[in-house]
Amino acid sequence: MPGQNVDTLRRQGKLKIAAFKFTSCDGCQLQILNLEDDLLALAGATDIAFFLEARRQAPSPPYDIGFVEGSISTPEEEERIGQIRRECKTLITIGACATSGGIQALRNWADVDEFCRCVYPRPEHIETLATATPIAAHVFVDYELRGCPINPADLLELVSATLAGRRPNISTHSLCVECKRSGYPCVMVAQGKPCLGPVTQVGCGGALCPSMNRACYGCFGPMEQPNMASLGRWFTSRLGQDARDMKRMLRTFNGYIEPFKQASDRYEQEEQRSKEQ
């Protein structure tokens, strides 16, 4: 549910919106620019205050809504997010990095020092944390927009809903509901493709991958109350997936968010057990 404070922002003139970037690929901020047709209307209805990707000038805080992209992976970021939280009445994370840690959270299962030594000629200049963690692990988050990248329509819907004072029409149920509503054939049942749709939250804009005859790979992260164990049993017993496949499938963009994390850890243990045997 959106924070109560989103709601009370209305009527005090335009919403002052800011976007902040942490460790990420910029793809989610780019999605805002990809709105193209809606961008002028968005700029007309709101005051986009701090958006380095689109503007050079940075008006001062406080902001009504702060959109945060990216995960926390350096000591500097750890500090900055606290400051930003104080400057934003409502803080909304956008995208998988900010919401679950993102791809870079894969290092949470590995040795970061080793990565640094392999990648950088002068690793001593690299200042980084051992983990990449979601924003909510550091400060209170009012609302999360999922996806890698986010669906720009969701962002528009969130701003529209805030302006109208209504709850955003953003659902937390499975992708399958939207896939069936859109009339797409099921790639899992009809073609045996391991599809994460039944445990993944809807939002990509009408079941994007199944609409292209491909299996969902879970870029919107876990839905409300997913039954990971049951789907996993089916994937491994009927669709030819093994523990390693399962682990890799779950550890993509949202591997570090529960319950994908717990399930992937379980498959990792299983993988190790089977290696030992």
């Binding site: 109560q4 709601d7 209305r10 009527r11 004072g165 209504r166 709850r167």
Partner: peptide, 10 residues
Amino acid sequence: VGSVTRALER
């Protein structure tokens, strides 16, 4: 309690 009632408040 919810969005409708909060909107009514205004």
